[in-house]
Simulated scan of single mutants.
Amino acid sequence: MSKTIHRAIDEIDRRWHLIDASGQVLGRLATEVAVLLRGKHKPIFSPHLDTGDFVVIVNAERVVLTGNKLKDKLYHRHSGYPGGLKTTTAEQMFRSHPTRVLEAAVRGMLPRTKLGDALFRKLKVYAGPTHPHASQQPIPFVKTTAKEG
């Protein structure tokens, strides 16, 4: 009979990844980021533990949306009052808050629990090329492809 080994929180090795979003497709980038935040790329992954890494994304304003999504994709928010539904297109969102587009895409791929909230706090998104996390020495993330050839 095999025994399941669970890691203690202080035994989990957390790394910082730096991702340049310029020229990358929004959804494909968001899936890679969600995998890093959850820790699914590690052999010690466990669905009920936070085994993920920190992710810093720069140049979020240069992310690409394919097709007509710039005009067709809608973001909704509600104030909680009757008639308080506000709708914004992706184009308007890029103009006013370019980081929120990427944050919303990644947030939608994380669990809707306390664990998902904790994972989302490890995501740092910046519109330009600079970030204040140089002291953590983030490792530039290299995209890996499942199929080659």
Results as ranks from 00 to 15, higher is better:
M1G: 15
M1P: 09
S2H: 09
S2P: 10
S2Y: 06
K3H: 09
K3Q: 10
T4W: 03
I5P: 00
I9C: 07
I9S: 15
D10N: 13
D10H: 14
E11G: 03
I12C: 00
R14Y: 03
L18H: 05
A21E: 05
G23W: 10
G23N: 12
G23L: 13
Q24H: 15
Q24N: 05
L26S: 05
L26G: 04
L26C: 09
R28D: 08
A30E: 00
A30P: 00
T31E: 07
V33K: 01
A34T: 06
V35L: 14
L36S: 03
G39C: 02
H41Y: 05
H41M: 10
K42I: 00
P43A: 14
P43Q: 11
P43W: 06
I44A: 04
S46Y: 01
S46D: 06
H48G: 09
H48I: 14
T51W: 01
T51Y: 00
D53Q: 02
F54E: 08
V55Y: 02
V56S: 04
I57L: 12
E61K: 11
V63I: 15
V63R: 02
V63Q: 02
V63H: 02
V64I: 15
T66S: 12
T66M: 10
N68A: 10
L70A: 13
L70C: 06
L70S: 12
K73Q: 15
H78M: 05
S79P: 04
Y81V: 14
G83E: 06
T87I: 15
T89M: 01
A90Y: 03
A90V: 02
R95G: 10
R95N: 10
H97R: 14
H97S: 12
T99C: 10
T99W: 00
R100E: 13
R100N: 11
V101F: 01
V101C: 07
L102V: 14
E103S: 12
V106M: 04
R107Y: 07
R107W: 05
T113I: 05
R121Q: 11
K122L: 06
L123H: 03
K124Y: 11
K124M: 11
K124D: 03
V125Y: 01
V125T: 10
G128I: 04
P129A: 15
S135Q: 13
Q136R: 13
Q137S: 13
Q137I: 07
P138V: 13
I139H: 10
F141V: 04
V142K: 14
K143S: 11
K143T: 14
K143F: 15
K143N: 09
A146T: 15
E148K: 15
G149R: 12
